[in-house]
Design a protein around this nucleic acid. Structure first.
Length: 101
DNA sequence: GTTGAGCGC
């Protein structure tokens, strides 16, 4: 499960993300995107977790949480495949219908 | 020494 983390603090690093997400489960890889020019953090990163259950748990717990003094946004990463099927729970990076089920 | 709604080389 690829997780997208936004609104990170500029001094936040991938190691911090790894430390934060690994608390909720196994983290395959955690990386914060940095600018190649300024070597500064772009303010967002990606976290990959093999277990979807832990991934969703981490998202629910880490979303809108205070990290490094800033409120971060943890969501599912952009869907790679657009098969056209009704991927209601496939994760579109948005909200899911809770009334469904 | 900065900023801030966003998807990675």
């Amino acid at each position: 499960m690829n997780i997208f983390v936004a609104k990170l603090n500029f001094k936040t690093t991938s190691e911090e993300l790894l430390a934060i997400f690994e608390q909720f489960g196994e983290v395959t890889s955690a990386k914060v995107i940095m600018d190649k020019l300024t070597n500064r953090s772009k303010g967002f990163g990606f976290v990959e977790m093999p277990d979807e259950t832990q991934a969703y748990a981490a998202i629910n717990e880490l979303n809108e949480s205070e990290v490094d003094g800033r409120t971060i946004v943890v969501k599912k990463a952009r869907p790679k495949e657009d098969s056209g099927y009704d991927n209601r729970g496939g994760g579109g990076g948005g909200y899911r219908s809770r009334d469904r089920y």
